[in-house]
Structure formats: C-alpha cells, structure tokens
Nucleic acid binder design. Structure first.
Lengths: 226, 226
DNA sequence: CAGTTAGACGAACAGCGTTCGTGTTACGAA
DNA sequence: TTCGTAACACGAACGCTGTTCGTCTAACTG
C-alpha cells in the first residue's frame, strides 16, 4: 500500500507536498520566489521532478488557490439571516485570499475556478442567495459580481497588508500623483486630491463592508420583485 | 528643434512610439508576445534601445494601460442624471479595457493607477457621484468599488470575447467541472450545475448592467442619508 | 570647427518553464 | 526468490525572459 521514501530521510514527493511547499515558499519569500526551480530546491530535488505531480506551473497555481479555499463548514441557508450569511461567506473568502500574501494575485490568473473547494464555496453562496428568495439567474449574477468584487478587494488589499508591495515605492507614487495633480490649475482635481487619506490599511475593512452592504441591500429590495 | 532620424527610413524612437508598438503587438499576437525583445524587434532594434524611453517593463505596461484610457470628453455632472452618467463612465472604461485583448490583465498588475488619464477618469467619476449628493468619503468608496468591479469584469469578459483564451480548453474545463459535480450524490450542487448556460458571451452585458444597476440604485437610496 | 551628450545597440548575465533521456527504485508475477 | 515492468527521480539542455554594461555614433551647443 505505502510506497516509502527513496532514501530514508527525504519525505516522498506528492502533489500535496509540492503544493504545500509552494505555499510555504510564497508566504516566506513572496510571489517571485515561487518558481518551479525554487520549489524543487526547497524539496531538495531538481525542477523536472515536480512535473510528475503537477502538469505545469499553471496547474500548481490553481492547486495553491484551491488549497487556501479549503474551509468550512458552510451555514445552513436561513431565509431570515441570508444577508448576514452571504456577508460571512464573502468575509471568509477574502480572509482566505489574503491569508498568504500573493495568493490573491495568483487567483486572478485563473479564469474560471474549477477546483473542488472553489465549487463548494460557489454552491454555498448560491444556496444562501436562493434562500433569500432570488431566482437562479439572479443568484448566479449576484454571486458572480460579489465573488468578483471580493477577489478584486483581496488583491488590492493584500498588497500593503503584508510586505508584498514596497511601501516606500507606494509612498513615492502617491507623491508623484499629488505633484501631477497640483501642477494643474486649482480646482481641476477637487475630489481626488483628498483621496489619499481615505485609502489606508485601516479603512480597508470599512470600504469592503460599504461595498457588500450596498450591493446586498440592493439585492434585498429585488428579491421579491422577480 | 527636431532631431531627425539616424538613418533616413527608420522613424525615430520615442516613448509614444514604443507604447504604440507594444499595443499593436498585444492586439496582433496576444499578451505573451509583448516582451521587450519582441517590441524592440518590431521596431527593428535591440532590446536595450527601449530602456532610453521606458524605465522597465512595468512602466511600459502602465503606459499602455493609460494609453487606452485616453478618451473623453467627460460629462458635465448633472444632479438629475448622475446615475446614468456614472454608468456611462463605467461602460466606457470597460470598453477601453476590452478594446485590446489582454490589456485588462495588464491593468490588474498595476496596484494604484497614477497615469494622467486614469486620474482624469477617477476625477470625472467622483464629480458625477458628488453631483448625486454623496459626501467625499462615500463617493470615494463607491468609485473605488465600481472601478474595481469594472476592471474585474473587463478582465473576465475579455477572455472569451477575443481569441485570447483557448475556447477548446475552456470547454474542456467546463466538462471536467460538470463531471466532478455529478460524481457527487444528486442534490449536492443543485444550483451550480445549471450555471454554465448563464455565463456566455451573450449575457456578459446583462450581467454587467445587473451589477452596476444594483450598486448604483443602492447608492441612490443612501445619497441623502449621510 | 571642437566639445559634449543623448540615444542606439551588441553582448552578456542570471534566471525562467519545460522537455528529453537516463537512471533508479519498488512492486507484482512467475 | 528472481525477473520484468512501470512509475518516479532528476541532471542537462533548449529557448526564452528582463535588465545592465560598455561602446559607439550622431546631432546639438558654443
């Protein structure tokens, strides 16, 4: 049954191990470090060895994303609390996609998530929305939009949440931005000039809640008007 | 004033020309073809020549995105029509980000858009939202969410709109997905199983309108409750 | 006409994803 | 127990990538 190790100390390779090692590497050294070569190096082997367990880098990426989406259990859809349930699911998804810096960026490169866990997340969200009285089409459209936004938020937010993005460079960009805007006649950018202070790490949660609250309260009004 | 060409036939290099060539290459051969080497090749020169006009590939990417965002004019904010004006701005942005296949993907790699045109787009949207009675903070949060969603939609939608994504492979993925879901007891994926038909190219516009309509009608209700 | 400088560009570096061919191991059958 | 086989491990190589260095040329300035 069990096919033990080649040489006593080295753990036998497996898809699970490759994926976990890649995630460890991502967490420890960032997105650029996750190359087939570096993952193989972390496993003390050559790059070719990985291809026995993973078709290519793209599949490895998909497996990594699906791995962080492995959580549950999912709530029993409750028509009385469906809005809060939907929000919880979204919050959990964002948490998962920001749990490892860089994983959200990888998630964006996957066109349609077909991983086992992604499908379960989707079905859970659909069940909650349908419990709210939405027909299938509306539930699908809403889930699509919400999932899209959550992924987008996770991607943007994850940057400065960890050391992934160079803070100094970001500061520099902000300065250049203000410089550019103030080089125009006053009143050209009346609203945008005061924007910087509102987009900090502290307001991230607030912005997220603002968006999903607005969207879901819109859904509430539409639920019976089908 | 004018520094004419080195040798009579070859047009003199410039940042503008480099960016346009890169966009042409992107349109003609897809994202993978846009490497510094290939762009240089299209300009009949070596890769090192580009670095006199562009700091690195990332800056080239930003310039490409900002180039497709160069459109206007922007509407005079009208408190009576602000919702429709906001929608128009969003539609135009999506159109721009899908006008060249692959440009949306590039746009996602840019953390905070600081290009001149991106800033003007942002200011225009903010002006419209404020005309709708939103305070600065709400307008910023809303514009952020809307812009995020539009970018996400453009990215997802652009795939099968052009030949960028392999249609056969996408079909294959759909099949694997259904296979996986039907391998479970019936009733495990009651909602997701019927999803495929709702996510075609034909329904793209409908899904987009559904999402922004929901969000903006939510904003309408909130505009005076500040 | 001389001096300076901005731009063009060939060559090279380190790293990438992936493939090929060969080695090695462990299991099932005889 | 011995042999055949199939799966996995993996070194080496291919063609590509972004970027830098040093050189060389051409055009503007004084």
């Amino acid at each position: 049954m069990s096919r033990p190790r080649r040489r006593a100390e080295k753990p036998v390779l497996s898809q699970e191990l490759v994926v976990k090692t890649a995630l460890d590497l991502l967490a420890a050294e960032g997105l650029d470090a996750v190359s087939m070569r570096r993952v193989a190096q972390a496993l003390e082997t050559g790059p070719a060895s990985l291809y026995a367990h993973v078709a290519n880098k793209e599949e490895l990426h998909e497996l990594m994303v699906d791995h962080v989406l492995a959580f549950g259990p999912f709530p029993e859809p409750d028509p009385a609390r469906w809005v809060e349930q939907a929000k919880d699911l979204l919050r959990e998804n964002v948490r998962a996609l920001t749990s490892v810096p860089g994983i959200a960026k990888i998630a964006w490169a996957i066109a349609v998530p077909v991983g086992a866990n992604a499908l379960q997340q989707a079905e859970a969200m659909l069940a909650v929305l349908r419990a709210g009285g939405l027909d299938l089409k509306r539930a699908l459209y809403a889930a699509d939009a919400l999932w899209l936004y959550a992924k987008a938020f996770a991607y943007e937010g994850a940057g400065w949440q960890h050391g992934d993005i160079d803070l100094a460079e970001q500061e520099e960009r902000g300065k250049r931005m203000v410089e550019y805007m103030t080089s125009f006649p006053p009143g050209t950018f009346p609203n945008l000039l005061g924007a910087g202070e509102h987009f900090t790490e502290e307001t991230a949660r607030e912005r997220f809640e603002f968006a999903i609250d607005l969207f879901l309260s819109g859904l509430m009004r539409v639920q019976d008007g089908s």
